[in-house]
Design a protein around this nucleic acid. Sequence first.
DNA 1: CGTTTACGTAGACTG
DNA 2: TACGTAAACG
Length: 714
Amino acid sequence: MPGDLFSEPASLKGLNEAQRHAVSLGKGPILVIAGAGTGKTRTLVHRVAYLVEQGEFPESILLLTFTRRAAEEMLIRARALNPACAAVPGGTFHSVCHRLLRAYGERIGLSQRFTVIDPADCQQIIKGAVEELGLKQAGERRFPKNRTMADLISKSRNLELSLEDTLEAHAAHLLDYGDRISAAAKAYEQAKREQHLVDYDDLLFLSEKLLQEHRDLRQDLHQRWRHLLVDEYQDTNAVQARLVSLLTGPERNVMVVGDDAQSIYAFRGARLSNILEFPQTFPGTRLVKLERNYRSAQPILDLTNAVIAQARRRYDKRLYSEKSEGPKPELLRARDQRGQSRLVVERIVKLLDRGVKPERVAVLFRAGRDSFDLENELRAEWLPFVKYGGIRFVELAHVKDAMAHLRVVANPVDFLSWQRLLMLMPGVGPKTAQQIIAHLVAQGEPQDYASRLAGAPQAKRLAQLAELAALMEDLRRPDLSPLKAVEKVLDYYAPVCQEAYEDYPRRLKDLEELPALASQHANLAEFMAEVVLDPPEAPGQSPLAARPLTLSTVHSAKGKEWDHVFVLWASEGRFPSFPSLEDEEAMEEELRLFYVACTRAARELVLLAPREHYFEGAGWRPMPVSRFVDEVPPTLMSQPAAGPVFPVPEPDAQPASRGSQSQARTFGVGQKVRHQTFGRGKVMGYQGDAKIIVYFEKFGLKILLLEFANLQPA
DNA sequence: CGTTTACGTAGACTG
DNA sequence: TACGTAAACG
């Protein structure tokens, strides 16, 4: 738009025509289909700022995102356009639902003391149910794991299918166990009811129930949130779509943004149909397509277009780039996993030497464990990194231990947590814990449980029970701030942690994150739910390294971009993953996931595919290149040079070929060893040829001189 | 004797 | 890492 730049509102500056159109549309439903790298986030951010400029109260705009971090990032950017945007409420579906249930849950009979549980808690409950009901016969090997059952229960709820139908569609091999899985599911529901526990799925379904049954509340909320903005709409499930409808007021100011080609959460119930059928759900929807890619160089786009063209379901989009030329994407074939790691490290070192900033570099992979070997290699080279995806903060046993103390204070009938914290005492196993809990229940009202602890018959034998009781009494003061509460718990728990875990230094370090988190919250319930729902990512990983490079699962890389992207294991069985090989729908999702991975790259994209891999039990097996790469026209990839461009290390079996340097490397990375003083440990890598890096179970990471370490294989 | 704890082994996706 | 089994505990 030529002419008077000074009169142009800040919220419309620097946008292309399609973006500007989307941002400045008036009231009514809007669907933005935004291809990868087309400025989806930018459009949402500017829309928020635009609405505020137009005189909307910031508090009346609700921004729903996929992660809390995404919401925070967007609001920071919106604030830069207009400081008033700081007051815009934002968060995930789950956190918004949680807040609704805290405030109004009693209207649907929910205890105000309810506790939010995570999938690990769910597994614990199911484990208990299986034991109690004797569902699993001794030695029954094929009986599904607790984890599998927990996943299936959640899946059936998210897909809104019966457990039986879910089994048939997604786990046919477990159909024989249908009755017993159903029994476990029933017991799980009952345990949640009795203990006032609410899982992730409940947050959504209970909120739906609340909004459906209370028209007055719905109307209040429509007054409060007059504009609804939803990011990553392609990854919402059925109940989330209904929540969007319920939260949308009579003015129907709802804008959803997404990309049908980037739907990667079908495995937990996401429905592509939500975004495809949005115009039918909201008649009069204005559709805006963003197709101009600002992220990737043309050669990368050519490849990603070819990748997504393999999808059975056609996507009516062909992205074109504003950017100039760049190198063609590369496929590098390493000898094996180790070779892959070394290739990546080598390339990264070269980039850094060239002055590329580490935060502009990422290594992506299908599953959390796919990067273990690379992590060892990076540590050996002292290259700091942050890893996203994999084990989450609250899933760490010690964090759950600490949180369990707070949970029983907030919700005394949370027996799951009672059991957990009682079992931390030496001499207390499942049976004794159950007995103590039985004593608590028999003795009185829930609010008295803490004070009754010391009176348990086991107290004579367990001196620590009195200490725990004292802590519980202390924590019951209603005016206690989350920070103070966490500090008191850690005072008590730190020594317990030292007793319970051999590698306590590492764990205590993780726990140091908790007080800072707690201090950000005004009340305990909110703090605990926040930790469970959206735990801090990658705790304690190189906090001192200012700008580390990124390792991430593809799922966790969603919405982000880097100049230089490496994708590990572009191999059949890894990417696509083994479980997806026999399921057509799963395979489509793998393809979209691979597409998401490749579209993260702005300038350089490098795919890696080891030639062979050692499988436990099966030995060395060739690893074919991923079908997603194989089926792309070869002209789109850079041709591998005649000889190896980068030295490919030989497998451990032939150390001589790696020259004198590796002669000393007697132990393979990952091998278990024993040291006279430090005891058992695991080889993490090497530093040069003289030093070996070993992680000892009791003493943590040590760097030893190989010559003197006198390590024995263990 | 019932429980707890220590140990060895199979198995692991994504949130 | 989590589970199943066997030794050690009290």
